[in-house]
Design a binder for these strands. Sequence first.
DNA 1: CACTCATCTGAACGGTGTCAACATGATCTT
DNA 2: AAGATCATGTTGACACCGTTCAGATGAGTG
Lengths: 207, 207
Amino acid sequence: MRETGNAHPRPYHHGDLSRALVDAGRRILEQEGAAALSLRAVAREAGVSPAAPYHHFKDKTELLEAVAHEGWEALGEAIAEARRTAVTPGDALSDIGIAYLRFARENPALYRLMYDTTRDRTAMPQTAHEDESGYANVQQALVEAGANPDQQELALATIALWCAAHGLAEMANFKEFAELKTAMGGEEPFLRAILRHYGVFHGHTTH
Amino acid sequence: MRETGNAHPRPYHHGDLSRALVDAGRRILEQEGAAALSLRAVAREAGVSPAAPYHHFKDKTELLEAVAHEGWEALGEAIAEARRTAVTPGDALSDIGIAYLRFARENPALYRLMYDTTRDRTAMPQTAHEDESGYANVQQALVEAGANPDQQELALATIALWCAAHGLAEMANFKEFAELKTAMGGEEPFLRAILRHYGVFHGHTTH
DNA sequence: CACTCATCTGAACGGTGTCAACATGATCTT
DNA sequence: AAGATCATGTTGACACCGTTCAGATGAGTG
């Protein structure tokens, strides 16, 4: 029942197949899109038979969840770094927002998969409840930016921000916004302007 | 090249098959979930061979777009009614938000399909640019609530609101929020509290 | 009536997720 | 060292999927 195993134990026949499968899944997802992400394609890419993955994941769903999990970790790191490198605590929130949106824009298929799988389970990703997670970082940044520290109010503010960022991430590249974007001098000003509408962002230092 | 045809012209063999197909698709979507929504299942449900739909839709995608289109119309009506029945212009915005969220909660599979198809086309639904659309209603409600009437600023505010509502709609039933919801006395107070965080909502009249 | 042509059917193709039966070989026990 | 164990991988099959194509059907038009 042990999970995946440690780093390089070079196990039985293939050599950490589960890892190879997840990597293959991620590559297919980024390069060929979600439509091409079939169990068989992943097995093909990893050089094994179509049935081999079933010794590591009970389902196609479970494989996809593993891929999504890596996505959540990467997103969490992007957020943590944005907070770490922010000039002032006041900048941190909008910098986090921009980092979040950049991640979604640079990994669109992965980002979408992440929310598809979490929605199917009607639960936040596991990482979202750990200390190093994106959620915790947003919450702390809120506190440092002077938000109401009451626990319930703080939870509401964090959720509100997260939802807004997610919605924006999914809609930001509608064609209809192109005109508005150029009128505002690019995509980042457009995004920052919308973030500012949520009332919690003050950031003006941009790059 | 004419679209679907009018109400009851009782055409060739089946009798407005395209309509029957869209209805079947919607029923399958609501009752059996998105995973069961196959072209063949829709044809089966409509009592027709698997190849028949191809005389009305060039693709499975095109069928799904037709289903999604009905969803956008229904959502637009829900928003229009919420605005119409709001007690004061100040209530309209939060009432619209609640109506939006209720629609998403009551038709989760349809709501998801709606955004899947629109995201694939990287374009807002057609309805979103018509006068009777949800977008226009939100924009007008914003004006009546005293928002900045500058056109660019107004567009930004509308987009910001729409994105926030969408993000909230997709995340609102994460298990992790259950505790917070009951602590606040139900789901609607929870939703209204989050909407209030977006700074544009004042509503307190609830039902 | 004969003709046309949109509409529907039947059968087929390659692709998919999944499973059961079998092969393989690393590790553990003796 | 030999043999047993058992996780791992393969082969082949099943049902279902989206899609296409040749042919049947039958409503409307001349």
